[in-house]
Design a protein around this nucleic acid. Sequence first.
DNA 1: TTGTATGCGTTATCAG
DNA 2: CTGATAACGCATACAA
Lengths: 337, 337
Amino acid sequence: MENINIKQLAKALNLSTSTVSRAFRDNSDISKETKERILAKAKEFNYQPNHYASNLREQRSKTIAVIVPELANNFFSQAIHGIEKIARDKGYHILIYATDDVFEKEVSFIRHLHNGRADGIIMSVSGEANDHTYLNELTQKRLPLVFFDRVYEDIITPRVITNDYDSSFSATQHLIKQGCKHIAYLVINKNLSIGKFRMQGYIDALQKYNIPYDDRYVVDCTNSYTKNNAILKRMLTELKPDGVFTSVERLAFATYYACYDLNISVPEQLKVIGFSSLEIAPLLNPSLTTITQPATKIGTEAANLLFRMLENPESVDPNEKIVLNSKLIKRRSTEKG
Amino acid sequence: MENINIKQLAKALNLSTSTVSRAFRDNSDISKETKERILAKAKEFNYQPNHYASNLREQRSKTIAVIVPELANNFFSQAIHGIEKIARDKGYHILIYATDDVFEKEVSFIRHLHNGRADGIIMSVSGEANDHTYLNELTQKRLPLVFFDRVYEDIITPRVITNDYDSSFSATQHLIKQGCKHIAYLVINKNLSIGKFRMQGYIDALQKYNIPYDDRYVVDCTNSYTKNNAILKRMLTELKPDGVFTSVERLAFATYYACYDLNISVPEQLKVIGFSSLEIAPLLNPSLTTITQPATKIGTEAANLLFRMLENPESVDPNEKIVLNSKLIKRRSTEKG
DNA sequence: TTGTATGCGTTATCAG
DNA sequence: CTGATAACGCATACAA
């Protein structure tokens, strides 16, 4: 790939490399004429300043890293879309990392990013983590870091989240008002922040309406479709809940599949509500009542926050927390019989 | 941020920088002891070789760029997931770019990638392009490039696609066998390769079954939901087709919405089939008959192809074309009345 | 096996 | 306004 470099371009123009370099930096003094002459020649030669040399020199990469548990997921792809928009406007590039919810990958990604590759990190944490001290170890020279949606409570860094507790409370309340008395809560990781907050909303709503809390109705699920299907079928037959509240989208789908298999009719026999970013929730059979997070907005807010940190670190309080509201959208899956 | 560098580490160990450097490169000679001592200290200091310096020195970035029309799309997020898996195994990083189907962005991304930032590119092209010569201009020092799914016919570079023509033929045939006589074909860009091939399959299937081709039934749609809704409603009321074949997922959803609005019952009055990577197609109302592309596999194949090019450019024929088969999955949306 | 010296392509500093 | 030069952090050729 014998790429042309600044020296060759300078030679071709009978100029020094410094002058050529200046043509590409907006601030430096340079005569309009020379600049134009240089840029024209550069275009002709298809010259692009080498990015690695610039970055090495300037000590910054104009690149941010985005770490998410999974890519093939509506919520995350929408969030990334939001991040992408902002980053593009700022002229930043985006590196993508998927942890597959494997904590070790997360640690490895983060560690390896601390080599100048990225100027900052936007992350939604893996579900499996218990010990996050690895992030604290990096604390002194840690890259600017913004959490979104799935966060570690014990790490102090700015974050963008949604009003999970309130949404869960509303969701549960909605089921209760629709007549449910035995409401199951489906969760993948109870210990993860969102699992915890969402569960608390569920519990408190039950209490408010004097429905006894029974921990058999809190169902631990997995990321495996087949396992979930088995777990849910057993739960549905044994406990016969009349309402299901799922803390993540995937579990709402799993519930639908299980109900199809068991010939349980939704919403007549079982009402279903779930957190979900699915744009075609109205097209489901039956259309799914959702708590919809502003996924794209979460992405743009997280990106804006990170850029504020990059531009002026002092301007951002490490405890800053942006809370966006999710929306409860009622559809047929929770309609009264 | 004052990141530790190789010099400081060397000093702390009373070694030269070259020795330290060697500890991180597997090939060079270095005593096991020293190496271990160095790596231990490196860990203690949390030292990572600066990526930009390495890349500048080695003239490669261990990074690939992925350019897609959109991120919030099942097909592309699954494909990216596939690419990610392979790249991760190879120790490569991934830069993501979304063109939003704007050709200028695509050109700009590609151009800017030719500055060393990436070693290769995997791209699904924007729909709006007519003049692709910009790619040919780069031809001599062009980065290794692999197309997937949406390709430019006039650019010679390896590609991973699906059997679009056959799939479309089968899809149309399936509608015909289910009794449809007036089949609409919904497309976003007729000129784009996949739009074209898929359309030819549709046309040929009609012909085989002696159904006259009527170009009013080929409906040009857009990426805007509201516009599509209007277009489809008009089409459905004016032409009253009994079958709809959509060349992209989004248009199947749009058809469903339009049918809901117009009280057209699927599949009784109208049968619907579409290209789609939606994993929950069985949960739609009615469940959607799909031509499902192996999206993740497309991603892994494209990545493998690119890595073959990177490892040994000669081993890959520029005309190489990997064709994967999509699957026609029959569901209720095309069942006989 | 280890150390020394050089250059990767840029940009900032300084001098002219 | 332009040119010479040093430095960014690392990896290699060469020397020891």
